[in-house]
Design a protein around this nucleic acid. Structure first.
Lengths: 144, 144
DNA sequence: AAATATTAGTTACAAATGTAACTATTAAAA
DNA sequence: TTTTAATAGTTACATTTGTAACTAATATTT
């Protein structure tokens, strides 16, 4: 197989990741919502999973614990999430959305959906599914 | 279409991009080659295109002109590339690989190929092609 | 049970990155 | 033609990010 290094997976994935983040953040700041793409990832993950430790969040999102501390610090200061020390193991802090966090989650969903719609426009649903499935395989391959 | 925000395109592409970069850099530093993934992107692009202005490099790789200045500064200091002021328009600087740059390009190719092989292992060539094609469409959708 | 090692989370500092303002040069408008 | 605007590239500074060392709690070993 021939590899084209300028349009390689690395370059394309970096560009897409950056574009998606910038695009979402632009839409949000235009609405005076000051949430970064990574903060949004944490919010939506917590909405889905209800309660996760910081390490779990980091593992699922591919972010290290220091980054998670920083994101949760900000989200907690904004009262969008809360940290609850686990009663069974005091090292763990369970993080969950506050009512305000759930509210802002619902507020952001349309913009996030919109960004995806832009990204996927004029591409068949099947192609997108296949692409995402392949990306997940690749991502798993790279988890050494 | 249902969007799963934790395994979304944004998260997966960010993770893949980061993993690929780290993986390549680890292989290279182990061989005492101190080239970052982004520097490598520039080197391989220049190998393909022979001669590009800094703006052209930035456009092709989705990096802004400040980042390009920094990367070219480093590569030039290492004598892997050279800047040549365009005779027809003194604003432009044409960048090209030096013999040493070409040499190191060839030295790195096997490691970059290896990283891709890891990433693509046990995935059919067809799936990979389709995935990359879709990613390129997505990337184009996100331009501007 | 005491000592040692791990683990979750945090903090502090160094390194990398983004933003804005700058120079030099060319193009366009008045 | 001169002055205004636009462009390529650079620099300086503020912000963000990564790395390493740290605390506190639990698990493991001796």
């Amino acid at each position: 197989m021939k590899y084209s290094f300028d349009k390689s997976l690395g370059n394309i994935s970096r560009m897409i990741s950056k574009s998606l983040g910038k695009s979402l953040e632009a839409k949000l700041t235009a609405r005076d919502i000051f949430i970064t793409a990574e903060q949004w990832s944490v919010l939506s993950l917590l909405f889905q999973k209800k309660k996760l430790t910081q390490i779990e969040i980091g593992t699922l999102l591919g972010l290290d614990k220091v980054q998670i501390v920083r994101i949760i610090d900000i989200l907690e200061k904004e009262q969008l999430v809360q940290r609850v020390i686990s009663p069974t193991d005091k090292r763990f802090k369970n993080v969950n959305l506050t009512p305000k966090g759930i509210e802002i989650y619902h507020k952001i969903v349309p913009y996030a959906t919109n960004v995806h719609a832009d990204a996927f426009s004029s591409i068949s649903e099947e192609d997108i599914k296949q692409c995402l499935a392949t990306l997940e395989k690749i991502n798993n391959n790279l988890k050494h």
